[in-house]
């Protein structure tokens, strides 16, 4: 096995005639926390769509642990070990929180779920994973409530939990702190840092405090292309990044 968990070469995505992504080369090291930053419209989410298979790459290739997954469908990629959370919360609102996580855990072995005689509770492993994630996200008091009835902060945590429950090798988090209160943000920061121990974490974030503090590597994107890449301190001080593209967006201090 190589040291690189996820890699893209010359990745491009087209929406009609619009080149959303072009020639993106990424190398995500195993068990690292790698963040993607860039102004709105940099097509960071499109990059995630391409990596998870929701959108097909129009050029280039994507490799997971050295294996070409460019033409693999999105649900197959989950089984290979890629899971994601969404920028806009995407849950099963009329199902209980615990059921949301049980489904996410079951998603790793979906063929089992095709048997119309097998009871959901028979998959003890999925239930155990769901409970473990609930514990880790401190959502136990609300685990039987409908996902749609949770507070925004709880929904955002559950959103990340949905990705965790798939036990992925690579976990992609799309703006996990968007709309969160200050206390919740601190907890999320801890969580992402912890996730980096067991998983490879790739995350999109606007909160520079988090990015600069917990990332091993930062990639700056602009208009669908990679601009600069490097460790946080280097990216923060890069005059080109500061002057030309982000201005005073980088305000977070390295603790």
């Amino acid at each position: 096995m190589t040291d690189i968990a996820l890699q893209t070469r010359g990745l491009g995505v087209k929406y009609g005639n619009f080149h959303a992504l072009a020639e993106v080369d990424l190398q995500i090291r195993r068990n690292s926390v790698h963040s993607i930053i860039g102004p709105n419209g940099a097509c960071k989410t499109t990059l995630f769509h391409a990596l998870t298979g929701r959108v097909r790459a129009s050029s280039g290739r994507i490799e997971l642990d050295g294996r070409d997954i460019t033409d693999t469908s999105d649900d197959d990629r989950v089984r290979l070990g890629i899971a994601r959370s969404f920028q806009v919360t995407s849950l099963f609102p009329n199902l209980a929180l615990r059921e949301n996580l049980r489904l996410a855990a079951q998603g790793r072995t979906p063929w089992q779920a095709l048997a119309p005689w097998r009871r959901a509770e028979a998959n003890a492993e999925a239930l155990a994973i769901a409970d473990e994630v609930i514990e880790r996200l401190a959502l136990a008091p609300v685990s039987n409530r409908l996902a749609g009835e949770l507070s925004h902060g709880q929904q955002r945590r559950l959103e990340v939990g949905m990705a965790m429950a798939a036990r992925p090798r690579v976990i992609l988090l799309d703006e996990p702190t968007s709309g969160m209160g200050i206390d919740d943000i601190e907890a999320m920061k801890q969580l992402i840092r912890d996730l980096g121990r067991d998983h490879t974490v790739l995350f999109i974030e606007h909160n520079m405090g988090i990015v600069m503090n917990i990332s091993d590597m930062v990639t700056v994107m602009r208009l669908g292309r990679k601009l600069v890449e490097g460790p946080p301190a280097q990216v923060r001080d890069d005059p080109e990044v500061q002057r030309a593209y982000l201005g005073n967006m980088i305000t977070g201090d390295i603790a």
């Binding site: 469908s73 099963f92 609102p93 199902l95 489904l103 798939a166």
Partner: peptide
């Protein structure tokens, strides 16, 4: 009744609720 109570039936509910998410967590919807 058995079908709707099974893990299959509960996955159907998930697909009804949010098909995009059901696919994203790995179900061939």
């Amino acid at each position: 009744v058995m079908v709707t109570q099974s893990t299959f039936g509960r996955t159907l509910l998930a697909i009804r609720e949010n098909e995009g998410r059901a696919a994203a967590i790995g179900f061939p919807t």
